[in-house]
């Protein structure tokens, strides 16, 4: 019984973090039609940002890190990505891969490759039955769930979200209706970057911080986006829960290496069976009219 509560709590913790990353990845794929290989490295930036500001109170460092994410995202979109939109899927893939390498090497240069760590701002434990669980994880998981709920309300219940969904559905038609693609691209990438950075900042106290920490998050987040309905922003969140559920299940009965192998085997299998899932093909008026 107690082990099941433990597994459940771990599952909620892991899926909340993954859901936030998957949401940000899905946002970028939906609007910019780019698979951002650097999404995991943006989490790494968030973790190092918290490490760099470890002298500050956590609740001051966290919003500052979010602002760092917004600025970084805006700079990357305006400075790098907008030059490769027209160059095809492979070019955008390579560009974000390159951004990831630069971020990793930058972190290694500034902070060295030795592992860093920060203390969680909440050190207490909560007791549920006879299970003892770190209070920080419980609070962060709850916080992320609230944040995702707010984000999804923003997307599906506000006029801002309406314009965003229109742009995701058909960027050219949205432009004809007054929605600037450039502005939307920059805004979406800045927001999605900041959310990935925030996710990294939140998990920072629970992990060993190193320049390649983001890599282990990218594949499951990508999997979560891939199995969701194209263009849907609730999809990646549910996808993350499904991926984490599968992983938790595998992990319960198998050792972690075998579990990971099977999970990524499933991902590879899914790509083979449903390759069109990756590109989320955008049918533009241009293609069909010409």
């Amino acid at each position: 019984m107690s082990s099941w509560i433990q597994i459940l709590l771990d599952f909620i913790w892991a899926s909340s973090g993954l859901a936030l990353v998957a949401f940000s990845l899905g946002l970028i794929l939906g609007e910019l039609r780019i698979v951002n290989i650097a999404q995991g490295d943006l989490m790494m930036v968030g973790a190092y940002s918290m490490y760099a500001m470890r002298g500050l109170p956590f609740l001051i460092a966290l919003p500052l890190t979010f602002v760092v994410g917004l600025g970084l995202g805006f700079a990357l979109e305006r400075g790098v990505l907008r030059w490769v939109y027209d160059k095809g899927f492979m070019a955008t893939l390579l560009a974000t891969w390159g951004v990831g390498i630069v971020l990793e090497q930058g972190a290694a240069t500034v902070f060295t490759v030795s592992q860093k760590g920060i203390d969680p701002p909440i050190k207490g434990l909560i007791e549920i039955g006879d299970v003892v669980y770190p209070a920080y994880r419980a609070v962060v998981a709850a916080g992320i769930i609230v944040l995702l709920a707010v984000l999804l309300l923003l997307v599906y219940r506000t006029s801002f979200g309406l314009r965003l969904r229109a742009s995701i559905d058909n960027v050219e038609m949205a432009a004809v209706l007054g929605i600037s693609p450039q502005r939307t691209f920059a805004m979406v990438f800045a927001l999605a970057t900041a959310l990935a950075v925030l996710a990294g900042a939140l998990i920072a106290p629970t992990i060993a911080i190193n320049p390649t920490l983001g890599l282990s998050f990218l594949a499951p987040a990508f999997f979560a986006v891939l199995i969701s309905k194209p263009g849907s922003l609730a999809g990646p969140v549910l996808g993350a829960v499904a991926v984490e559920f599968t992983f938790t299940l595998l992990q319960t009965y198998l050792n972690i290496t075998v579990a990971e192998s099977i999970l990524f085997g499933l991902l590879a299998l899914f790509v083979v069976v449903k390759p069109q899932g990756i590109s989320w093909s955008r049918t533009t008026a241009r293609e069909e009219a010409s």
Partner: peptide
């Protein structure tokens, strides 16, 4: 070129936003 995932009402309202 309707926004197929959105409702009729949303299709109409989104056009009013910047018009």
């Amino acid at each position: 070129r309707l926004f197929n995932g959105m409702t009729v009402k949303e299709n109409l309202l989104v056009a009013g936003a910047y018009g």
